[in-house]
Design a protein around this nucleic acid. Structure first.
Length: 422
RNA sequence: GUGGAUGUAGCUCAGCUGGUUAGAGCGCCAGGUUGUGGCCCUGGAGGUCGCGGGUUCAAGUCCCGUCAUUCACCCCA
């Protein structure tokens, strides 16, 4: 059908674009304050980048990528997440360390849409390269929390966990598998699949039987090596120091292979089943996986459609859009010619103006001026033209005065306090 | 990929167990003011009842298929 958009995509129409502009401004503002630099990468990359970066057994790579061949036979993929491309761009540009980046743009995943999930959605993300210090993990969490706070969202829950490193994670994995096999094969079909692909996820199964088994399983946090243990403990100290309320949640696992040590999710009570509005963590192994020098890194991704959904359920007041300054209402062809010139003059002076081009009745034009929420209407009829004036009407109070055509610009600019000038 | 719900005017919806020209509110347009908005009144435009097939004398209504939307699972922002 030529009039239906692809499944899982959204149109942002003029009615809602102001909300997006507002959110985007807030993103840029907070990143400026935290000293993160914007980076823009292509929306598509070589498929191999995501296969290697995200992990070839992850759901994202196995069944959710928009992959296509270009005319040169290369396999390309619409980015399913932001991090891999930022790392690639940093390496390719031989950009200096330490580096703090943010990005804002669409990502694509082939999934069944539902509340808070789309095939194209918008992510705001940050990445910090070049330091392993837990204070940086705390900083990005603080950035997200402060960002939400500025929207009066203070009851979002920050969940943190540690997944260990190449030293301790395999040990834990083995220990968990030993426990699960000893506990017997009484798992649901989903968990039987999970046991090979990502056994940690069994801990998060919703089936009652699996939960019971999982409740007795060894915890990651008990098996961390000394370095990871200390790192996680320090992260928590920094969060406390920053006054950030958080919950240690061993079931935070994440679906991307590159995470090491810190992982976190910020969830909302006001969303449906897809309640994570921000998720991220540390990925100290990703640079090396791309053939770059080993470089510690941490970051998060935030789903802006989900943020918008939360805001729309909250009582947050978006700023009201600026009003039209002037609506010019000509009556008759001669007036039309004058109106066009007047409009040009006013616009050149920086006023936000429009006029009627449909040749409608004055009544209809006034209705239009009202609907556009204009501050002023400038009425041009034969009587006015004869006298070289226009009737300038203040829409709010209804006062109307005749102003010489040559003085209209000055007259309106003198009423700046009644206009929405920037 | 799996399961449930829903598709009637631009929007939100009504349409009883199948029965004659498919309705309402809001919105839109016009008129009520031969040149003046917001309130009010009057009138008007606008519908392949998602699409295709079937049952029937007769289908918006029942059946099958299909597409779309939506919620949930898997998984994720």
């Amino acid at each position: 059908m030529l009039t239906t958009r692809p499944r899982g995509t959204n149109d942002i129409t003029p009615e809602t674009i102001a909300r997006w502009h507002h959110i985007e401004e807030r993103v840029r503002q907070i990143c400026r304050e935290f000293n993160y630099q914007e980076i823009r990468t292509p929306v598509f990359e070589h498929t191999e980048l995501f296969v290697r970066g995200v992990g070839d057994t992850t759901d994202i790579v196995e069944k959710e990528m928009y992959t296509f061949q270009d005319r040169g036979g290369r396999s390309l993929t619409l980015r399913p997440e932001g991090t891999a491309a930022v790392v690639r761009a940093h390496l390719q540009g031989k950009l200096p360390l330490p580096a703090k980046y943010y990005y804002l743009g669409p990502v694509f995943r082939y999934e069944r849409p539902q509340a808070g999930r789309f095939r194209q959605h918008t992510q705001f993300g940050v990445e910090v390269f070049g330091t392993q210090h837990p204070a940086v993990d705390a900083e990005i969490i603080a950035l997200a929390v402060e960002f939400f706070r500025r929207f009066d969202l203070v009851d979002l829950e920050v969940n943190v966990n540690s997944l260990g490193c190449p030293v301790c994670r395999p040990k834990y994995r083995k220990k968990l598998l030993d426990y699960l096999t000893a506990a017997g094969g009484c798992f649901c079909q989903d968990c039987r699949n999970r046991i090979e692909r990502n056994p940690l996820r069994i801990l998060d199964c919703k089936q009652p039987e699996c939960r019971e088994v999982a409740s007795g399983a060894p915890a990651v946090l008990d098996v961390l090596c000394a370095e990871c243990h200390d790192h996680f403990a320090e992260l928590q100290r920094y969060l406390t120091r920053l006054g950030i309320k958080y919950r240690v949640n061993p079931r935070i696992v994440r679906g991307i292979d590159y995470y090491t040590k810190t992982v976190f999710e910020i969830i909302s009570q006001d969303l449906g089943a897809q309640d994570t509005v921000c998720g991220g963590g540390r990925y100290d192994g990703l640079f090396a996986a791309f053939g770059g020098p080993p470089t510690p890194a941490t970051g998060f991704g935030m789903g802006l459609e989900r943020l918008l959904a939360v805001l729309e359920k909250s009582d947050y007041q978006f700023p009201k859009p600026p009003r039209l300054d002037v609506f010019v209402a000509p009556m008759g062809p001669q007036a039309m010619a004058v109106a066009v010139q007047l409009l040009q003059e006013l616009r050149q002076a920086g006023l936000r103006c429009d006029m009627d081009y449909l040749g409608r009745s004055l009544r209809a034009q006034m209705r239009q001026a009202d609907k556009l929420d204009s501050h002023f209407a400038v009425l041009l009829g034969e009587q006015e033209l004869e006298q070289g004036v226009a009737a300038v009407r203040a829409m709010d109070g209804g006062q109307q005065v005749a102003v010489p055509l040559t003085d209209i610009k000055a007259y309106l600019l003198a009423k700046q306090n009644q206009l929405d000038l920037p």
